[in-house]
Design a protein around this nucleic acid. Sequence first.
DNA 1: CCTATGGATGAATCGTGAT
DNA 2: TATCACGATTCATCCATAG
Lengths: 384, 384
Amino acid sequence: MASVFPLADLKASVKSDSRPDSRPGSWVDTIIKGDCVSALEALPSHSVDIIFADPPYNLQLGGTLHRPDQSLVDAVDDEWDQFASFEAYDAFTRAWLLACRRVLKPTGSIWVIGSYHNIFRVGATLQDLNFWILNDIIWRKTNPMPNFKGRRFQNAHETMIWASPSAKAKGYTFNYDALKAANDDVQMRSDWLFPICNGAERLKGEDGKKAHPTQKPEALLARVIMASTKPGDIVLDPFFGSGTTGAVAKRLGRHFVGIEREQDYIDAASARIAAVEPLGKAELTVMTGKKAEVRVAFNVLVESGLIKPGQVLTDAKRRYSAIVRADGTVASGGEAGSIHRLGAKVQGLDACNGWTFWHFEDGQSLRPIDDLRSVIRSDLAKAE
Amino acid sequence: MASVFPLADLKASVKSDSRPDSRPGSWVDTIIKGDCVSALEALPSHSVDIIFADPPYNLQLGGTLHRPDQSLVDAVDDEWDQFASFEAYDAFTRAWLLACRRVLKPTGSIWVIGSYHNIFRVGATLQDLNFWILNDIIWRKTNPMPNFKGRRFQNAHETMIWASPSAKAKGYTFNYDALKAANDDVQMRSDWLFPICNGAERLKGEDGKKAHPTQKPEALLARVIMASTKPGDIVLDPFFGSGTTGAVAKRLGRHFVGIEREQDYIDAASARIAAVEPLGKAELTVMTGKKAEVRVAFNVLVESGLIKPGQVLTDAKRRYSAIVRADGTVASGGEAGSIHRLGAKVQGLDACNGWTFWHFEDGQSLRPIDDLRSVIRSDLAKAE
DNA sequence: CCTATGGATGAATCGTGAT
DNA sequence: TATCACGATTCATCCATAG
């Protein structure tokens, strides 16, 4: 499934005077081997829906660290995590974020994860490049590594920044209602609790050692992808590593593009993704709120006979009343207008949702006219 | 108690060829009126033990925001939170952090609190100035304001950065053992759960409205100060506001210095601090090292105010009693330790469950402190 | 006296599409 | 680009008032 798409081939398709390969699909669901920025520059503009980036953390470790029992802590000391200075790290960050900005759709958004070693520099650079921060999200670890020396608080979280390409870019996907429903019907907070990636989920090499030093848990990526993409969207991960982003994207019915320099990681990620079984359409249907539903105007209720001209509407406490007119407007006292305008007017407010404010008599009880709109929508759905 | 120390007077004591007023005490436990940087420059070098800073967040709010019920959200739109650009905010940040660096002892540390609007810039500037980040700490709010429009995750936390003056400055105070003992004998994590400041603790003006728009909860400052200072230390707050830092410092037997521009805030903070009763020495003794054999999980009750430092606990039959100290340990006779150890000790047993052994007065009756732990746990469960 | 209920509010970068 | 209409959208807590 996850074929490797060599950067050289991709570059070969670049015409001298235009952007490369704008055919959708040729680079989709592949892992591009190569340097992050070069590979990004070879992708078409505005071609991916979200980006999830887990860049090098620029850990500045003094020497080796031992546990109280004298065992050695296997620290992240890979070559790719070494930078000469903050300036060098900032330049690197700026370069890959700029390259990401071009590839990202205006309706897209970007996630970056990091720790206190690098996340402040990443956040400031995002702002400098006019990305617009939507949230910072805290991944609280249920099982973080202890602080062995007892000189600091246990570092028990990592930080993710979620941003849109600009302050004006409000078209990003956010599946608010699905998240709320999944969270016991209260809105999802900015602090998320997940275990670190361990056990069977953790990729192992032939030597039984962890295949990648910073493999992220699939649950974390699942929430990110479910929150900010639609099925069929393209998810780009410019630091693909062990391929968690690709595996979760495939499972959730999204497409992925990975960029990775090291062949060992590409091999591990390819095998991992090939083994993933995508979920079916039914499981992937995202719960949506009212704003995604078909628009039904008030006069449709009048025209359909569910509300009759001359009928009296009141608010839930019968403090205000209005009479329905044949043209789908309502009137009260000397005022008349839409259900929303009149609702606002009688209450002395700037705005009002007339659908939930106005009620009608239904036998003994009062029911909001929104109930009747649901009836119409249900009929429309059957007719589809 | 909290006298106002006018910046003009302080500057008058500056000799032309030397640093100002190095007599300890003249500026201690006062609120200096004036601009943050100017006031800092008038203080002696290396004179304070920790700094807690709650700088302007540089919120960039579009227009007005209404709740679903059409009521208006009272936003932070004060003049002091307005900056022309990120560059202007960075220059401001750099200036006050540089001034703080000079005033801070080499054995000291600095805390800065912020949100995603400003904390990344603050963190990057701290690193640029060679401060050494020790932890980033997440204040998880039990009761944050919702996201009313359903366009983002509920912004349910703020971030604090804790840093020493340089990578080599390892002399900072960190009361590891006391924190661990107070946290059910596991090390204190980087994510802290506290309610926002509300109710009786929130300072109100004569009009009944909040006296300051961003008053921080005392429990938060209590954990900061208990973690990173010793009794008698000097705590500097360059953005004093409603004086939470001063009030908690005084209660915990530390000295404070506040800097604040607005007379209304100075007046409110002065009155507030004057009403604070410091705790006694016994309550303030901090556990150090393993020889004290501390084992407790009790300080959340103290920080939350369910149990007050100095409060007396007894067993169910009032045969034994103990006094609660601010660091979450308890004392009786010449003995002190965790609720479990002391309970065992007074009974002459090897072990004891302090949660069910120790009781507190609740009106006419005695109730086990475990009941209060249930209250906390209930709050925690809700916050998850 | 207690309990029930309604209103108020907290560091907030908070809509979309047609005209 | 500005304006307007449509109509979607909140959690925990404290306090005042009613019953």
